[in-house]
Nucleic acid binder design. Sequence first.
DNA 1: CGTTGTGAACACTTTCACAGCC
DNA 2: GGCTGTGAAAGTGTTCACAACG
Lengths: 229, 229
Amino acid sequence: MYVSDRTPAEAARDIPEATVARLPLYLRALTALAEADQVTCSSEELATAAGVNSAKLRKDLSHLGSYGTRGVGYEVEYLRYQIAREIGVTHDWPVVIVGIGNLGQALANFSGFRSRGFRVVALLDADSQRQSEVVAGLAVRPFDELAGIVAEHGVAIGVISTPAPAAQAVADALVVSGVRSILNFAPTHLAVPEGVDVRKVDLSIELQILAYHEQRKAQPDALDDEVTA
Amino acid sequence: MYVSDRTPAEAARDIPEATVARLPLYLRALTALAEADQVTCSSEELATAAGVNSAKLRKDLSHLGSYGTRGVGYEVEYLRYQIAREIGVTHDWPVVIVGIGNLGQALANFSGFRSRGFRVVALLDADSQRQSEVVAGLAVRPFDELAGIVAEHGVAIGVISTPAPAAQAVADALVVSGVRSILNFAPTHLAVPEGVDVRKVDLSIELQILAYHEQRKAQPDALDDEVTA
DNA sequence: CGTTGTGAACACTTTCACAGCC
DNA sequence: GGCTGTGAAAGTGTTCACAACG
């Protein structure tokens, strides 16, 4: 049992998953406001910028603590830092990308990577032909160097952008090397041990969800009253 | 207001959003089973393949109708077709991709696109330098041809893979052209009119969610030591 | 004042456990 | 016997509406 015996200003222990998923949205919106030299903002303003409603925003922030001022709003820079600290992006996280095909190259070149608390420390590929290439300023290295690279840089997050059939083996190797957080772009389900987090990004699934709703929109047959006015 | 009486044959009208988001998973798992020449499967088997638990799977399928046989399971090919029909991928959907940078090119080359009910009919980019290129067998065309292309091919789904600052203008243009479903890869919130669906795929957000959990894992005191050996 | 922070109500999702059927 | 389909219970997330407070 870890005592939640309050670290200094931490009343914020169990943050709901839905809230965690929105914190990066707020962080991005606050960064934009800060770049526009805005000093304070209301929950309404920030919520609009992030694309949520203000009640939800306030409820979310209430899980982190009480960082606003009633009658006034939030101090942009202060709140931005508090959220960054809560997410854990006040320092950079070293990341490896495995699978340097079209998608892997695009990811390696993605600038938002570096600017948002992540640093790509290595690109790996099993194909020896690719190992002569340099992508985004990094040499592509053989996959079997994974364990060494993870240990050397303290990598905690691995990105898989291989074809689907290779993904499970890559995930297994990442886990063996000590990586406990995986972002999977391969269109397949990954089985991992307890304690390892996998998040997936899947183009076909998103498109299919859109298709489902699109199909419903173009439904003129039934005597359904759609009521637009 | 008239009766919201459904068509009798269709008990499957209001499918919960959470279920819709999982149907593509089941479709993929069923396709894999079909390719392995498996004729029937149990909810347990299919659930494992899709990475969910069997109770959830059965509840989800119950929203579509009663396609299984008690004591036996589901007929793979039959269920696969029923789900494909429900999602709306028994025929192909024409798609345009706007923004042919690194990511746009990777998307254009993504083979799962074609094989899963979607057909890329055009690649668009505002940069006239790119308009001489051919990507994935398609010429990159000027952005202002959008409306014509949408009308010509009956495009209903648009994919945005531009830099963030351009995304809102692209979304607006898509909407004006008649596109009502958008998949947004640009790291920014899009404002769209009622009736238009936007789904977003956002690398930084996924990484930040992983970072949040990773940070919690490494809590046991000061020194963060990796590798459990 | 105006705006935050929050209990309480409501809505949605998951899980349980077993009746119903093959 | 074994597996599906489903009410009921439990858990999560969202919205409302207003008290608290600078």
